[in-house]
Design a binder for these strands. Structure first.
Length: 251
DNA sequence: AGGTCTGTTCAGCT
DNA sequence: TAGCTGAACAGACC
């Protein structure tokens, strides 16, 4: 499940193809490439070179030489494939072919990924790994919504998905159900520090699945620190696990 | 073999 | 406005 760490690794994959000339574009999946018509992205990109690869949260975009930006999102099952042969099934939803014979593809079984020209990121909040302390306090510590639901709101801060949210809240010993405006400034600051640490660890180790809490949740459903059986509920529309002993609420 | 679950984003509601 | 619900996708699993 791609979250910020997976998106960062995907961005690094894209960097491997910078500078190569595009000679072929497959943009025929009208769902993944909506609202573009087939051939529209191809016409805009053929003959150009990708020049810089950016990311904010889970959203990626690539600059081209004198051409439009190309926005990419992995959805929940997407993966960037670089210089791999085309998938034998129909799971490559978009691809670029380069003059050196290499290619870049969005491999996405579920078609929840997106490819779009000139992406609009105005509704996307600051990157969860780079947001300032002041912005974090203001954006996360406000309102009566459940803390976890706010962490998942990409307009507040961007990049946190379901697994990273559970991992981070467990590391920070905060209950996912707590209304945001019950958190003190020191609690918010500590949460931000833990979040940054979780993100860096996940990027380093290869993804959110490498988190200690996520592994325990799939293994035996017991808290890795105290052994208490984990609680489970739907929060912010997503399945949520936490340790009721160490992440209590009300206090 | 049907029913449920998965997670991200967006549209549409209160 | 802020927050919630369900749709969209399609495969994994029981």
């Amino acid at each position: 499940m791609p979250e910020l760490p997976e998106a960062e690794r995907a961005r690094q994959q894209i960097e491997r193809v910078l500078g190569r000339r595009i000679v072929a574009v497959d943009d025929t999946d009208t769902w993944v490439c909506r609202p573009h018509a087939p051939g529209e992205i191809a016409a805009a990109l053929t003959g150009r070179r990708l020049s810089r690869a950016h990311r904010r949260g889970k959203f990626m975009w690539v600059e081209t030489d004198r051409g439009p930006e190309l926005g990419l999102h992995l959805g929940m099952a997407g993966r960037i494939a670089v210089d791999e042969p085309p998938a034998t099934n129909a799971w490559d939803r978009f691809s670029l072919g380069f003059e050196d014979g290499g290619r870049l593809a969005l491999h996405d079984r579920r078609r929840l990924g997106r490819v779009v020209l000139q992406p609009d990121l105005s509704h996307v909040g600051p990157d969860a790994g780079e947001v300032s302390r002041e912005a974090f306090r203001a954006r996360v510590g406000r309102g009566r919504i459940a803390l976890k639901a706010r962490l998942l709101d990409q307009g507040a801060i961007s990049g946190v998905g379901n697994l990273l949210a559970d991992e981070t809240l467990w590391q920070a010993r905060l209950c996912p159900l707590r209304p945001c405006d019950t958190l003190s400034a020191p609690e918010l600051d500590a949460l931000r520090r833990v979040l940054r640490r979780s993100i860096r660890a996940a990027i380093r180790h290869g993804g959110v699945h490498t988190g200690e809490f996520i592994a325990a949740r799939e293994r035996d459903g017991a808290c890795p620190r105290c052994g208490a059986p984990l609680a489970r509920a739907t929060v912010g529309g997503r399945t949520t696990y936490w340790c009721p002993a160490e992440q209590p609420w009300p206090l």
